[in-house]
Design a protein around this nucleic acid. Structure first.
Length: 487
RNA sequence: GGCCCCAUCGUCUAGAGGCCGAGGACACCACCCUCUCAAGGUGGAGACACGGGUUCGAAUCCCGUUGGGGCUGCCA
């Protein structure tokens, strides 16, 4: 066994159950599997756990593939679909049955509830009623695993150490539904063995089911018997590593209903894949050397499963956003323009006749880059460039123009001054500085009415560069419009 | 209820007995820079849950308490 492990490269699998969106927790699990595989030179395998027919939808699988691709975590193998491997599970079940590891059970939920109640409460879980009834398998009957009455199973976890589970606390769990369909716990073990999985890296929520998986694994190995598949006979148990959960501000497992968990939503809000990946790597782990913002090669180099934390981590969008901003600022203008372009197209905003012009955008892009954290903030910042009149913020207009005693004089002077000066930011600035002196205000104060008249808001990109890009005509027209509105 | 996991600043973490009068990052506050807003720079506030041990010495090891979380489906 040690020989097998030392000569074979690690094989890890990411085994999501399709749900229609890609959960950030799943993304983190996929990432840690991927990082481990990359670092060890092993294989990262994608397996779709869709034994439950409710979860068997092709577009959901596509969604998983797309999300993984976006994150740069393309699998080396797969996707394998459990729904296409039913024969394998049937065969395994037959072997387990023949070797006496299973028994049929026709108890209903009500039966069990009544028995437990008449016994005066007690522990939940199946009570083993059918264990020795000798029922044959058939419609309406599930197949349960005979958990040993005594002893215990120890889960050797790379992150948590040894965790012991007493057998008397493990119920005889169902392995095959009454419809004949296998349950995930069974398919999981069969597949891990069949695929030669060496390391099972997954969420901590799966830890309690792990002893069941181990029991099943051993029974499976034993059931192969003397007939064939000698290479599988000694199939070594994979190494387990249970990752800490991702939680919300209330310290609870991230839930679909209450928390923003869909990776696709983050993507559509303008979070970059590199930032998301980097941030996810920091949840439950961190590089010992160097900054937290690091490229994947560096993170992979330093990654150690043994160093993963034990405690749950809060998914902090603020920190994600900050990291995202750092990545945005770190891009070249060309990269940023391209990135924003694909973002707009994905959003379907490219066609709206919004007047968006990439050439114009490119000119202000460096200024924008420094001021946004996520791509969705860009639009509001540059909107004034792509419409006839700026989207006017009422509060800004009131404050900087309506209720500003100097506004009329400043706007008037600007209208005149801008009509004649050379149209470059520095020249426009110079004229504006002159206006400030004239009215006896600091430039900061004096520029406000102009900014609002032209861009529609008191806050925004540097004004003079904005005016240069906007153009003389439109600038003056807007100032004129503001003057008229003021009158 | 039962079983299991976890416990360092508000948050993510560094820390594997003395290097810790606990370091970094996000957020927060102040100042500097500045045409607004940012970015950037400087500084600040801010944590070893509690109680027992072990030890010359504990954030680091052990036990307990408390607190939080997960699982407890013919879902995964």
């Amino acid at each position: 066994m040690s020989l097998m492990q030392s000569t074979n490269l690690p094989r890890v699998r990411f085994a999501p159950s399709p749900t229609g969106y890609f959960h950030v927790g799943s993304a983190r699990t996929a990432l840690f599997n991927w990082m481990f595989a990359r670092q060890q030179g092993g294989s990262f395998i994608l397996r779709i756990e869709d034994t439950d027919t409710e979860r068997n939808r092709e577009e959901w699988v596509t969604g998983i593939m797309d999300a993984l691709h976006w994150l740069g975590l393309d699998p080396d193998e797969g996707p394998y679909r459990q729904s296409e491997r039913m024969d394998l599970y049937k065969e395994a079940v037959d072997r387990l049955w023949i070797n006496g590891y299973l028994y049929a059970c026709d108890c209903t939920k009500d039966d069990l509830a009544h028995r437990i109640q008449s016994k005066g409460g007690g522990k939940p879980g199946y009570d083993g009623y059918c264990r020795d009834r000798g029922l044959e398998p058939g419609p309406g009957r599930v197949l349960r695993f005979k958990v040993p009455l005594e002893g215990s199973t120890i889960v050797e976890d790379l992150i948590r150490g040894n965790v012991e589970f007493r057998h008397d606390a493990i119920e005889d769990f169902v392995v095959v539904k009454s419809t004949g369909a296998p349950l995930f716990i069974l398919a999981n073990a069969v597949d891990d063995m069949d695929m030669g999985i060496t390391h099972v890296i997954r969420g901590e929520d799966l830890l309690p089911s792990t002893p069941k998986g181990i029991l099943l694994w051993r029974a499976l190995v034993d059931s192969i018997g003397t007939s064939s598949a000698t290479e599988k006979r000694r199939a070594p148990l994979p190494v387990f590593a249970h990752l800490p959960m991702l939680v919300n501000e209330r310290r609870q497992k991230l839930s679909k209903r209450k928390d923003p968990v869909a990776i696709e939503d983050y993507r559509d809000k303008g979070f970059l894949a590199v930032a998301m990946r980097n941030y996810l790597a920091l949840l439950g782990w961190s590089p010992k050397e160097g900054p937290e913002k690091a490229d994947m090669n560096e993170l992979v180099r330093q990654f150690r499963l043994e160093d993963v934390n034990h405690s749950p981590a809060f998914f902090d969008v603020k920190k994600l956003a900050h990291l995202n901003g750092e990545y945005i600022r770190g891009m070249s203008t060309e990269e940023f323009v391209a990135e924003y372009g694909t973002f707009r197209r994905r959003r379907g905003g490219a066609d709206k006749g919004s007047g968006f012009d990439e050439g114009v955008f490119r000119r202000v892009a460096p200024l924008v880059q420094e001021r946004v954290e996520i791509l969705s903030e860009v639009e509001g910042m540059v909107a004034f460039l792509f419409s006839e009149q700026p989207p006017m913020d009422a509060a800004s207009f009131e404050k900087a123009i309506q209720n500003n005693p100097n506004a009329k004089e400043i706007l008037q002077a600007a209208k005149n001054g801008y009509a004649e000066c050379p149209w470059h930011a520095i020249d426009i600035r110079e004229v504006t500085v002159g206006i400030a002196e004239m009215v006896g205000l600091k430039l900061a104060k004096a520029q406000a009415p102009i900014r609002v008249a032209v861009t529609g808001s008191t806050v925004g990109l540097p004004l003079f560069e904005s005016l240069e890009v906007l153009g003389r005509e439109r600038t003056i027209a807007r100032i004129q419009a503001a003057l008229e509105k003021l009158a």
